[in-house]
Structure formats: structure tokens, C-alpha cells
């Protein structure tokens, strides 16, 4: 049996080189977002990426089901989209629907992280001593005192988040700001992929906010007039806003990872967030 002949080897080599050279521009154009459309030739497309850190959530784009999240399926990338606005809906049983309008631009991807808030947010009264009811939360006296003292200390006017952003309360308004615009790593500051801001207004209006902090993936804040709310920090349209304890005068503190609300003299722990 003779070694592989030079002619055969050349045929394989030149054949593969030819195939490589033919495929190369196609692959590179495809990877960059170019698509061929009959009648239009090569067009630039964009994409959408939705991160869904929950299981069993349905993702719709312009009313069409794009998929359902699972343990292994936490991200949805939809490419080949013409530049335009797209309505994204993420729904899950037991949670508020999450709606977002995303602008797709040429060769760019609009991304967002679904923020699903339970529709069963409960304020459980905190009492001290032995538990007397399943509808209250019993803590030790020292723990209860700890909670009370926490409310005697004025709330911080700013707290820092995970990605270099901070939440501020200024003149009764609540903002989330980037300390360094160059460190922008999340798209919630961007109205569209190519246009970003460094400040997201959370509550800016007639109400007077008295405190705000990052909690449960969003911003928790309290106003004198309406109580405690949870808002999503996102510059794009229809960010989530959920009443947590909507009673005038209620204030909150985050103690040991729990959200505690004070209404008059009563303390409540918020569950469901």
C-alpha cells in the first residue's frame, strides 16, 4: 500500500483551502450581524438578549413566544432583527409581568434583565417574645430592640450597588447614578445600545422621598405621602414599580438582609421580595 499520493493530498489541501476562503467572508459577515434578504441584498441586523434569572418564565417578543426559562436556560438571544422597537414581555405565574420596550440598532444587541416581583408581597408584624400567631413574626427582645434602634438612626442618603452605581436621595427625589460613566457594564442606563446616560430617576415628582436603598434586585424607597415602594432601576420605558407597604408615613430599614418597615410604632418584616 503506497503512501497518500501527492496529487490526492494537493486535492484535499486546495479543496479545503478553497472551501475555507469561500466560507470565511460569509462567516465573518454573519458573525457581525449581516444577513442577506431577497430584494434588499445584505442588510445590517441587530439582536436582543434577555436574561431571565427565574425558572418557568415565558418570554414573548412582540407577542410571540420566544421560549420558556429553565434551570439551564437563563438567557434568550434573538438575532436577525431589523432595527426597530420591540416589546418584550416576561411572565411567570405568581409574579407581576415584566414589560420592556427595547430599541434594536444595526449590529448591536439590546439586552435587559427581567425583573419579576412576586405579586404576594406581605407585611408580617414583628413582635417579641414567644410566637403567638402564624401571622406574626416573633423575635427575641434584643433583636426587636435592634430593629427599633435602627430606625432611630437617620437613613443613609446614598448606598452603593453591585456594578458601581449608587442610589441617592436628593431634595426628596431618588436617583441611581453611575460614579464613573466609563465603568458602565449594565444596559439599564442605556435608552438604546448606542445611547447611555449616567443617571436614572427612580422617583422624581411631587412626593418627598425620605430614604432609598438597593434591595431585592431593585431600589426600595419610601415617600412621606405614599409609603414604601420597590422600583426597577432602568432608564427604558415601563420600569417595574410595585407598592411594598403603601401607607403614608411608613419608613424602612434593611437589617441583616431583611426589609423591615416601621408604621407608627409597629414593625413589619416584608416577605415575598
Amino acid at each position: 500500500m503506497k503512501p497518500l499520493s501527492r496529487n490526492k493530498r494537493r486535492t484535499y489541501l486546495y479543496g479545503l483551502i478553497a472551501l475555507f476562503l469561500i466560507c470565511l467572508p460569509i462567516v465573518l459577515f454573519f458573525a457581525s450581524g449581516y444577513r442577506f434578504k431577497f430584494g434588499f441584498g445584505f442588510v445590517k441586523t441587530g439582536g436582543i438578549f434577555i436574561s431571565v434569572p427565574y425558572t418557568d418564565a415565558k418570554v414573548f417578543i412582540n407577542g410571540e413566544l420566544a421560549g420558556t426559562s429553565g434551570i439551564l436556560k437563563r438567557g434568550f438571544y434573538i438575532d436577525n432583527l431589523a432595527p426597530s422597537s420591540y416589546e418584550i414581555l416576561v411572565s411567570r405565574a405568581g409574579s407581576h409581568d415584566w414589560l420592556r420596550t427595547l430599541v434594536v440598532e444595526e449590529n448591536l444587541v439590546s439586552d435587559a434583565r427581567a425583573f419579576l416581583v412576586s405579586n404576594k408581597i406581605e407585611a408580617i408584624p414583628v413582635v417579641y417574645g414567644a410566637g403567638v400567631s402564624t401571622t406574626t413574626k416573633a423575635v427575641s427582645l434584643s433583636q426587636y430592640d435592634l430593629y427599633r434602634v435602627a430606625f432611630e438612626i437617620p437613613a443613609a442618603t446614598s448606598t452603593r450597588g453591585t456594578f458601581g452605581e449608587s442610589v441617592f436621595v436628593e431634595k426628596g427625589d431618588v436617583y441611581v447614578r453611575l460614579s464613573d460613566a466609563g465603568s458602565l457594564s449594565t444596559s439599564n442606563f442605556c435608552g438604546r445600545p448606542s445611547y447611555c446616560v449616567s443617571e436614572i430617576p427612580i422617583e422624581r415628582g411631587r412626593q418627598a422621598s425620605v430614604g432609598a436603598a438597593f434591595f431585592g434586585g431593585g431600589v426600595i424607597y419610601a415617600t412621606k405621602e405614599r409609603g414604601v415602594f420597590l422600583a426597577e432601576a432602568d432608564i427604558r420605558s415601563t420600569p417595574v414599580l410595585v407598592p411594598v407597604y403603601p401607607k403614608p408615613g411608613a419608613i424602612f430599614r434593611i437589617i441583616d438582609g431583611s426589609l423591615i418597615v416601621k408604621d407608627g410604632k409597629a414593625l413589619y418584616e416584608i416577605e415575598g421580595l
Binding site: A31, S32, G33, Y77, D79, N107, D111, S185, S187, C190
Partner: peptide, 16 residues
Amino acid sequence: GRGFNTTVLSYNLPLV
């Protein structure tokens, strides 16, 4: 950086 991470190319790099 974000400038690259928002491109279609950055999403397609691992896929392709």
C-alpha cells in the same frame, strides 16, 4: 468593555 459587549459580534463569537 460595553462598547464591544453590545455588538452582535460579541454575542455571535461564542456561538459561531
